[in-house]
Amino acid sequence: MTLSPSRYQLPDSLFYQNRLSQAGDWHYVLSDRFRELLLRPYKGRELPVLPAAQPDALLEGQALAQHFAQLQYLAAPLLQADDLEALLARVQALASRSVDGAIASIMLGSWQDYTAQHAINAALLACLLGQALQLPPDEQHSLALAALCMNLGAAALHNELSQHDGPLSTAQRKQIQIHPLVSSALLRELGYQQALLHQCLLGHHEHPDGSGYPFHLNKDDISPLALLLRMIDISTAKLMPRSYRQAVPAQRALAQLYTQQSDEQFDPVHTAQLVKLLGVYPSGSFVRLASGDTAMVVAQGEQLNRPQLVLLRDMEQRLDAEQHEISSQLTVQVETRHLQRLGQLWPLA
């Protein structure tokens, strides 16, 4: 698909013009003053050391989220592309080594920094979908990196909004609308020049009917990779709790994607693959059995509604899904102290 760069012109607004300039096709540069204002609160921070690999998927996902919670507020020259690539390699390794473990990490992540956990979860889901859809390697890399970095331009604000249930202020709305451009500009500073990556970043909040932002593009002007990232972003947000609501159960979240499909215009191949990956009961889900016992889903089975299970009171033995009927999915808030015990279900060694 060939996109027209003429549709990606910097919006003619003083709010945008005072903060960014355009240096070429899909290429935006932060103004010196705006860059100073953006990064001033984080001056003096040191580059964090990437933590050692963890023994299971839950602890690994948690360690990577905690690392990105520090990394996301840094910029060049302190932050380098190699720092992001090292983190992304760990995310990709987790997704490759344990599909069920990666999904459980998304479902069970106990977050202190919403933006960082969302980034790791979205990057994991991007890796899983990229593999499942057999995207070319350059598209898989661009999609995963864009998922990890799509909110760099407003990391603190996204954390603020995770605690906020209500309409945005005018200032918040303007910052949200500009953040795809800012995230793209920050990655340019790190040396990322691939048009595919920036088309994905810049378009991940565009809507096929033209109601998205920041360019109000129509479907033919939006990168298919950006539309896939939009689906990943929405799905990840639904599956994560906020301070004012619990996580949306996977069944309902997937149903909402389908009911919205005529409006969102997600690729049906993408939504079908997402359903296949997560299943009716994703790994890491808690369920009530017809017997009254509480169980956890540890892996998908041959049938979407027949996953592999363990009883919470006896996690040593996996149950025969054909002999244990699931009556309902449960929403359980998992605390950080529980992750080590639960993580043994998805070892990485």
Rank of each mutant, 00 (worst) to 15 (best):
H141G: 10
H141N: 13
S142E: 10
L143I: 07
L143G: 09
A144M: 10
A144R: 05
L145H: 12
A146Y: 11
A146L: 01
A147N: 12
M150E: 15
N151D: 10
L152C: 04
G153L: 09
A154D: 15
A154V: 11
A155N: 10
A155D: 04
H158Q: 15
L161K: 13
Q163W: 13
Q163A: 12
H164L: 12
H164F: 14
H164K: 14
D165Q: 12
G166T: 04
S169W: 01
T170H: 11
T170Y: 03
T170L: 10
A171W: 07
R173Y: 06
R173H: 13
K174Q: 15
K174T: 06
Q175D: 12
Q177S: 04
Q177W: 07
I178G: 01
P180K: 02
P180A: 03
V182Q: 06
S183N: 09
S183D: 06
S183A: 15
A185D: 04
L187C: 07
E189V: 00
L190D: 01
L190E: 05
G191P: 01
Q193R: 10
A195H: 10
L197C: 04
Q199S: 07
C200K: 02
L201A: 13
L201G: 08
L201T: 02
L201K: 14
H204N: 12
H204S: 06
H204K: 08
H205W: 10
H205N: 11
E206F: 03
P208C: 04
P208W: 01
G210T: 03
G210P: 08
G212S: 03
G212V: 02
Y213Q: 11
P214H: 04
F215G: 01
H216M: 03
H216A: 15
L217T: 08
L217N: 05
L217Q: 08
K219T: 01
K219C: 05
D221G: 09
D221I: 00
I222Q: 01
I222E: 00
I222L: 00
S223I: 01
S223P: 05
P224E: 09
P224S: 11
P224I: 09
P224T: 02
P224L: 02
L225E: 01
L225T: 14
L227R: 13
L228K: 15
L229D: 13
L229V: 06
R230T: 12
M231W: 06
M231Q: 15
I232W: 08
I232N: 13
I232T: 04
I234Q: 15
